[in-house]
C-alpha cells in the first residue's frame, strides 16, 4: 500500500501521537495532584535533597496520570456518551483501550517502584494505595453504583499531600492528614456544583450523580452541608505547626466567600438557576477551585516564610 492511498484523517488505533498519550494522563487533574503533593513535601519539617524531592513529585504525578489512563480505559463506554468527555483519546478511537490499560499499569508500577527507591517504601505503598483506590474502588466499584461515588472516591484525589509529606519524612503526622481531610471535604461541593450545570451529561451516561438520583434540592442541601463541614477542617489545619497567620487569614476569608457562594446555591431552585444560566452554581464552582488553590498556596507561603525567617 502506498502512502498516497492513505486518507488524510486516518485514525488507526496504535497510531496515536504523543499529545494523545499526554491527554490520557489527565494533565489537569495531574496539576492538582502535583501542587498538593508539592505542598505536603515542602511543608514537612525536614530537609529533602532537591533532586529526591523532584523525583518524588514526578512519581506522584506519574502515578496520578496512570490512574487517569486506567480510568479512561475502564470508562471508555460512558466517556463516549458524555459531551464533556467524548473527545478523549480512547472514546474518539485515537488510543486503543488495551493500550490505555497497558500504559496505565506500566506507569503505575514504574511510579511506585521509583518512589520506593527515591524516597521510602511507606510513601510508595501510599501511592500504590492511592492508585488502587482511584481505579478499583472509585472507577470500577463506586462510580456506577452510588451517588456517594465522589464522596468516597474523593479520598484518592485527597491523598497526594500525605504521600508528599511521607516521601519527605517517612512517617505520618496530623498536619498532612488534615490536608487530606481538607481536599476530601472540598471534593463533594466542588463536583456537585459542576454537576448542577452539566446535569444532562451525567444523565446521558447513566452515572448516578446526586443530581440525577436525588434531584436538585438534595444536591443543593449537600453542597451547603459540606461547605459548613469544611470550615472546622480548614481552621484546624491552621492550628498545626505547618500553618501560621498567613494561612489563618486566608482560610477565614476563603471560608466566608465559599460559604456565601454555597448559600446562594442553596437558597434557590432549578428554575431560578436556569433563568440566569446557573450563574451562582458556576460562581461556586470557580470559587471552589480558588478555595483549594489558595489554601495550599498559603501553606506553601508559610513554608517559604519559615525557611526565610529560619535562615
Amino acid at each position: 500500500m502506498s502512502d498516497a492511498s492513505l486518507s488524510p484523517s486516518l485514525s488507526v488505533p496504535g497510531e496515536a501521537g504523543m499529545g494523545d498519550y499526554w491527554e490520557l494522563l489527565k494533565p489537569r487533574v495531574m496539576s492538582l495532584v502535583v501542587f498538593t503533593a508539592l505542598v505536603g513535601l515542602v511543608a514537612a519539617p525536614v530537609g529533602v535533597h532537591p533532586f529526591v524531592a523532584f523525583v518524588s513529585i514526578l512519581c506522584i504525578a506519574v502515578g496520578g496520570g496512570a490512574s487517569g489512563a486506567l480510568n479512561m480505559w475502564w470508562d471508555a463506554d460512558i466517556d463516549s456518551v458524555m459531551n464533556r468527555t467524548k473527545g478523549r483519546p480512547v472514546p474518539s478511537g485515537r488510543v486503543a483501550p488495551e493500550e490505555a490499560k497497558a500504559i496505565g499499569l506500566a506507569l503505575s508500577g514504574f511510579s511506585v517502584m521509583l518512589l520506593g527507591l527515591a524516597a521510602n517504601w511507606l510513601a510508595a505503598g501510599l501511592l500504590a494505595f492511592t492508585i488502587f483506590f482511584y481505579v478499583v474502588v472509585y472507577t470500577v466499584w463506586l462510580k456506577r453504583r452510588t451517588p456517594q461515588n465522589i464522596v468516597i472516591g474523593g479520598l484518592a484525589g485527597a491523598l497526594p499531600p500525605l504521600v508528599g509529606w511521607v516521601a519527605a519524612t517517612g512517617q505520618f503526622a496530623w498536619a498532612p492528614v488534615l490536608m487530606v481531610l481538607l481536599v476530601f471535604m472540598w471534593t463533594p461541593p466542588h463536583f456537585w456544583a459542576l454537576a448542577l450545570f452539566v446535569r444532562g451529561d451525567y444523565g446521558l451516561a447513566r452515572v448516578p450523580m446526586l443530581t440525577e438520583t436525588h434531584g436538585d434540592r438534595v444536591t443543593r442541601n449537600h453542597i451547603l452541608a459540606y461547605a459548613v463541614l469544611l470550615v472546622p477542617v480548614s481552621l484546624a489545619l491552621g492550628l498545626t505547626p505547618v500553618a501560621g497567620p498567613v494561612y489563618l487569614a486566608a482560610s477565614v476569608v476563603l471560608n466566608l466567600l465559599f460559604l456565601g457562594a454555597c448559600w446562594q446555591v442553596w437558597r434557590r431552585d432549578r428554575a431560578a438557576a436556569e433563568a440566569d444560566r446557573f450563574a451562582a452554581e458556576k460562581r461556586a464552582f470557580k470559587l471552589s477551585l480558588l478555595y483549594l488553590f489558595l489554601h495550599f498556596g498559603a501553606l506553601l507561603a508559610e513554608a517559604g516564610l519559615g525557611t526565610i525567617l529560619g535562615a
Binding site: 492513505l6 486516518l10 497510531e15 501521537g17
Partner: peptide, 17 residues
C-alpha cells in the same frame, strides 16, 4: 516522497519515547 500526517505522528511518538 509523500509525507502523510501519519508520519508526523509516528515521528513525534518516536521522539517522545
Amino acid at each position: 516522497k509523500v509525507e502523510h500526517e501519519l508520519h508526523g505522528r509516528r515521528w513525534g511518538r518516536n521522539l517522545g519515547v
